[in-house]
Computed example of a mutant assay.
Amino acid sequence: MKVGLYFGTFNPIHVGHLIIANHMVEHSDLDQIWMVVTPHNPHKVKANLVDDHHRLHMVHLATEGYDKIKPSDVEFRLAQPNYTINTLVHLEEKFPKHEFCLIMGEDNLKSFHKWKNYEVILERYSVYVYPRISVGKAENELIKHPHIHKVEAPIIELSSTFIRENIKQGKNIAPMIDHKVWQYIDHNLFYKK
């Protein structure tokens, strides 16, 4: 089974994340997408970052209706700070019959060379890249790497930051977020302050 790993804080998960994940699994050779919830680094103060387990629960709620999209808390049990290469090696050991790949926005390629062991990641794993408006003409040379696959997905310019700011201002964000996720956020008064 070929699994695409879509990492994020998902604070909160929104329709943009689901559109990208669903498009990647339906329009590539990936069999599943695992939404890997990145834990809160205890050494960093992160304003408005909801607890790990609440964010994981929101990903569960948002992905219930998608057979090929699964939530993952794999990084919750790994040493912090965590690096993508460590997660990939851990998952390979745990699921030896799966082939793991990365999913990232094209804008992340600009800083990919700063990732720990990025050369090893490129040598051993495929990277599926979706387009972002924020990428200029000076396209990264990495896009030409044989293990990088550009997938023509919809360009979604919706962010969790925008959603949090709108919740704080009391605006209606219903179209941007799964209904069950919105109920959970509202019930728990997340992002109100």
Rank of each mutant, 00 (worst) to 15 (best):
K114L: 14
H60N: 13
M104Q: 04
F76L: 11
L88S: 02
H90V: 03
D67E: 14
L91W: 12
F100I: 04
V59T: 10
M58I: 07
L61N: 03
N86Y: 09
R77S: 11
F100Y: 13
H57M: 06
V59K: 08
L88P: 05
D67I: 01
H57K: 11
K70P: 08
W115M: 01
H98I: 08
E64H: 13
K68A: 12
F100V: 00
K68V: 09
Y66V: 11
D107S: 07
V74T: 10
N108V: 14
I103P: 01
E93Q: 14
T63H: 02
L88H: 05
R77E: 04
T87I: 02
F76W: 12
I103G: 01
E92Y: 01
I85L: 13
K68L: 10
T87F: 01
I85Y: 10
H98G: 02
P96T: 15
D67C: 11
T84I: 08
S72F: 11
H57R: 07
F100N: 03
F100W: 12
P71G: 03
S111Q: 12
E92V: 05
I85N: 02
I69T: 06
Q80H: 05
D67M: 10
I69D: 00
K114V: 13
L91P: 02
S111N: 14
K70T: 15
L109Q: 03
L78G: 01
P81V: 07
C101N: 13
K116A: 10
C101A: 15
V89D: 07
Y66N: 11
K97W: 12
W115H: 05
E93S: 08
L61A: 10
K94G: 01
N108G: 01
Y66R: 08
V89H: 05
N82C: 11
P71M: 06
A79P: 06
E93C: 06
D73H: 03
G65K: 12
H57F: 13
M58C: 06
T63R: 04
V74I: 11
H113W: 10
G65P: 06
K114A: 09
V59P: 04
L109K: 00
K114Q: 14
P71I: 11
K94R: 13
M104G: 14
V74R: 03
V74W: 05
T63I: 08
A62T: 02
K70W: 15
L91I: 10
I103Q: 00
A79S: 09
E64I: 05
G65Q: 13
T87N: 06
H113D: 15
E93Y: 06
L102D: 00
F95C: 05
F112M: 08
E64A: 15
K116M: 12
H98R: 04
N86S: 13
F95H: 09
Y83M: 09
G65T: 02
G105V: 00
N108K: 03
E92P: 00
Y83C: 10
H57T: 11
P96A: 12
P96I: 07
E106T: 05
N108P: 00
L88N: 06
K110P: 04
S72D: 08
H57V: 02
F112P: 01
M58Q: 01
H90K: 02
I85D: 14
L88D: 04
T87M: 09
F76Y: 07
K114H: 15
L61K: 00
N108E: 11
N108H: 04
K68F: 12
L91S: 01
H57G: 09
P96M: 09
